[in-house]
Amino acid sequence: MKPYTNFNHTADLGLAITGASEEKLFANAAFAVFDILTDLGRVEPRETRRILVEGDSREDLLINFLREILYLYNGERWLLKEIRVIKIDQKALEAEARGEPFDEHKHEICKEIKAVTYHQAEVRKSPDGWAARVIFDV
């Protein structure tokens, strides 16, 4: 089962993400973005990127993290295949992403995700671990 579901937002893309731990939750959020953006079956983990972000709260941290994740494709045309969150506390996060540069002959872009918004963003503890809700501009 996928660690995320879509919820309805009139104009844009709402995602509800879950994870057994906080690390997993953040990693799953990054996975969700690229799972929607491309066919991950065609992406290989050939390169490693380190991601460091800071935030004032868990929500802020998640949004700043997803900003960096989105910039991988939107700015650098790089596709993420897998991600591991190495360290996380309420204010900072360190992660390692593996993937490869976008190649139009090899990869497919299924859906453009243009930005992550603060609107109704939420990170909370759930009975099964952690859960988050985020709305993206598409």
Partner: peptide, 20 residues
């Protein structure tokens, strides 16, 4: 296009801190 999105995003990040 992407330029406008990035401008909005950059200033949102900045002003979220600024309003506090």
């Amino acid at each position: 296009r992407g330029l406008g999105h990035q401008v909005c995003d950059d200033y949102l990040a900045k002003l979220v801190k600024h309003v506090d």
